[in-house]
Design a protein around this nucleic acid. Structure first.
Lengths: 107, 107
DNA sequence: TTGACATGTGACCAGATGGTCACCTATTCT
DNA sequence: AGAATAGGTGACCATCTGGTCACATGTCAA
């Protein structure tokens, strides 16, 4: 339980892994080699990162023949949100976040 | 911008720092020495962790005399959420998360 | 004003992390 | 069957990270 979310946070701590999640968010169900093509890194590095994401439950995989398809699982991310933002403060935080985005886009 | 969120994710990667956020979520505006009392660690360790949280923007501080008061800032956490959960999928993810919590509480 | 209290800084060390490589297995295509 | 493709494993190394300590500054109370 506590170790579970430790894996999630540790997985999110690396920029390459976050980029992999971005890729899957843009288009789900990619193979490992397809993802390798998007990164300037050896396939071993990418495979290692995907393994970390999978063990954290942020990515779910399905094997088809010799290929492995990767899907994004957003539930752990929602749980991060819910840990420090409760139902009552949520609307206020959402408004603040919106405001921040607006201010930054005006520059 | 990208470095900004790198600091946020790196800050969240450590269990001690997450616990400090939990403490501030339960009660805001604590001093550093008050937080030290909650942890089995030297004051230097705690101070270092608080500095990381502050530089990530997850904690905001205010100095009063010789004391330093700490407040939780939830906006960066909301931004993590919004990065991978868009408005359209949000209700579905929220429902799934709810379901997951229910199933786990039934055990 | 002197001593206790709250916090800050830089050096240092053990252990964790990110990345690469050599080598291996399983599946598909011709 | 043989070659090419997709992916997996364990060792190895440079660097980052978490924690401690000696020392220092600013603030409050008697």
């Amino acid at each position: 339980m506590t170790e579970d979310d430790d894996r999630v946070f540790k997985a999110l701590a690396d920029p390459t892994r976050r980029f992999l999640l971005d890729l899957l968010h843009a288009r789900d169900g990619r193979t490992q080699s397809e993802l390798e093509g998007e990164l300037a890194m050896s396939r071993f590095g990418v495979a290692k990162h995907l393994k970390v994401l999978e063990e954290a439950g942020l990515v779910v995989t399905r094997r088809v023949g010799r290929e492995k398809l990767h899907h994004l699982n957003p539930v752990p991310i929602r749980l991060i949100h819910d840990r420090w933002i409760d139902k009552y403060t949520e609307p206020r935080v959402a408004a603040l976040t919106e405001l921040k985005a607006q201010l930054e886009s005006e520059e």
